[in-house]
């Protein structure tokens, strides 16, 4: 249960908003739930709804509205590749094709081993460093086909731990 396992974090999140405006916490709590369950499972949504005194369908509508909440299980590493216009002017479309070939899946799919989900995304505010990707929300700039392969290989071997919190001292 989220409530027991992440009690302190839930308390800290709720404290940011006025006591009668707890609903504001729905997105931060969904991130927490997603971290815990890997995606916004029906159970996760029910728990968030309970904490906030909402109807589960209301929580589900929030999940459906935003692209960063997953309604279905995703890979351990979610790789978001920007193929919006500024990135595409610097080769992003060809780069996505390479990513698809490397991972053996189409954008929008997860590898059979459950390790990688590949998505294309709209502009992620780093257009001068294109092609640019995010792996579990961590930026990787100035990507090349070779650096992508290297990254994926490292993550596949599970020695890419540093990329999870690359800024930690």
């Amino acid at each position: 249960m989220l409530r027991e396992k992440r009690a302190d974090e839930i308390k800290a999140i709720l404290a940011k908003y006025p006591p009668d405006r707890k609903r504001s916490a729905v997105m931060p709590l969904l991130y927490l739930a997603q971290e815990e369950y890997g995606y916004c499972s029906p159970e996760a949504m029910r728990e968030v709804a309970e904490i906030l005194n909402l109807d589960p369908t209301e929580v589900k509508s929030i999940v459906g509205f935003y692209t960063m909440f997953f309604e279905h299980p995703v890979g351990k590493y979610v790789i978001d590749v920007c193929d919006d216009l500024p990135c595409a002017l610097r080769g992003a479309d060809k780069f996505v094709t390479h990513c698809e070939r490397k991972l053996g899946v189409r954008a929008g799919q997860t590898t059979p081993d459950g390790k990688f989900t590949l998505r294309t995304v709209m502009c992620i505010a780093a257009c001068d460093r294109a092609p640019v990707i995010q792996v579990n929300r961590v930026y990787h700039y100035d990507m090349t086909e070779a650096s992508f392969d290297q990254l994926v290989d490292a993550l596949a071997r599970e020695d890419g731990a540093e990329h999870v919190n690359p800024r930690e001292e």
């Binding site: 405006r21 504001s24 931060p28 991130y31 509205f65 935003y66 692209t67 960063m68």
Partner: peptide, 21 residues
């Protein structure tokens, strides 16, 4: 407060709605 992937939330009243949950 972190959004979750929606361009429309840059529109100020949509941002407020999002912030209100």
């Amino acid at each position: 407060h972190l959004g979750a992937g929606a361009y429309i939330c840059g529109e100020e009243t949509a941002l407020l709605s999002s912030l209100e949950g």
